[in-house]
Design a protein around this nucleic acid. Structure first.
Lengths: 183, 183
DNA sequence: CCCTTGTTTCAATGATCGTTGAAAGATATG
DNA sequence: CATATCTTTCAACGATCATTGAAACAAGGG
């Protein structure tokens, strides 16, 4: 390595107190994303990158988070798949550096919305199919079965309706807010 | 048991096809609520109750879902705690009967909103505390640390801001929709 | 007061998930 | 081409979570 400092800056020595603050924030985000059904570490890794002045190397991120390089690598793969981090290469440094997507609101909305959309679509399909099955099971059935089927189909219809409504609300939300944050 | 049918009606014999439809819907709801961080069985149990013409006994619910009475009991406790099912007693029948809350939209909104509120509040507190820690760690620090702290505090501020915004949006949503569905 | 029926609790089991450490894979450098 | 450095993959381990079955508990009815 060249004696004159390389392209990756020498990184300020982190004060214990700054470390603590960073940890606190990372854990908070980790808890949030875990509640939303993603992996805790995705939130933690994204956070330390987001709070860093410059892209971090794998080693730096591992140190700050206290996790192995293996776990970091997997987590980064997850985050890249969601478009939440990018890999960036500094000239004169062989190591990869990672930087966080900084359009927080847009990113969160995009990721959550796509997941919800998939889930709602799946549920809606299941409800519609269940209605269909119920209807066809009712023809040539004795009265009490027909009555049960009619009732059940009605309730399934309500579920399907609510699901459609939620989907519409989701679209509305994402479009409205996406246009507010257009930049 | 008295030969003249008792208070709990004899329950129509469930056609295999109706069973299948019910299962499909129950699983769909189960998947949804699991995605949202609740237990899969909560969704399944609520669904069979919601699709039933009349409140079901523990035994009936267990049969339809293929789970043990122990698990059903725990799951019902969870659901009662959220106000998603009620226990109802039919005269002349010692057994408990369970019925689903039928105001689906209102119920889902209430449960989800309260969870989100808690999570967002927690995160916000963490961010504010992290900002505080960062600021106090910056006094009497050398320039590079101060710069890092300033940057980090700024980003933490953005996180806090987004969190507050999400909370406001949540309030807006629940109020708007609650009033639309007032009944 | 005991026996029957129904419900809840809980220890034990099995399944699932997260994490590590090491091996394999990549890539630039001498 | 060999070596050094960095990244990814993956088998194995430990922790966590869901589920059962049985025991404890509750409540009426004979």
């Amino acid at each position: 390595m060249s004696p004159t400092g390389n392209a990756a800056s020498p990184l300020p020595p982190p004060t214990p107190a700054l470390r603590r603050a960073e940890q606190r924030a990372a854990d908070a985000v980790g808890d949030l994303v875990e509640l939303w059904g993603f992996k805790r570490q995705m939130g933690r890794v994204w956070t330390v990158l987001f709070l860093s002045e410059r892209p971090l190397t794998a080693t730096e991120a591992c140190e700050r988070l206290g996790i192995s390089t293996g776990l970091l690598s997997m987590t980064l793969a997850d985050l890249r798949a969601l478009g939440a981090v990018r890999t960036v290469n500094l000239p004169g440094d062989r190591r990869d550096h990672y930087e966080a997507e900084t359009q927080v609101w847009r990113m969160v909305l995009r990721v959550l919305a796509s997941r919800e959309r998939g889930a709602l679509d799946g549920a809606l399909q299941a409800f519609e199919r269940a209605i269909e099955e119920t209807r066809s099971a009712m023809v040539d059935a004795d009265p009490s079965v027909r009555a049960a089927g009619r009732f059940s189909a009605g309730r399934l219809g309500r579920l399907a309706g609510h699901t459609r409504g939620a989907g519409a609300l989701l679209r509305l939300l994402t479009e409205t807010i996406a246009s507010r944050h257009r930049k």
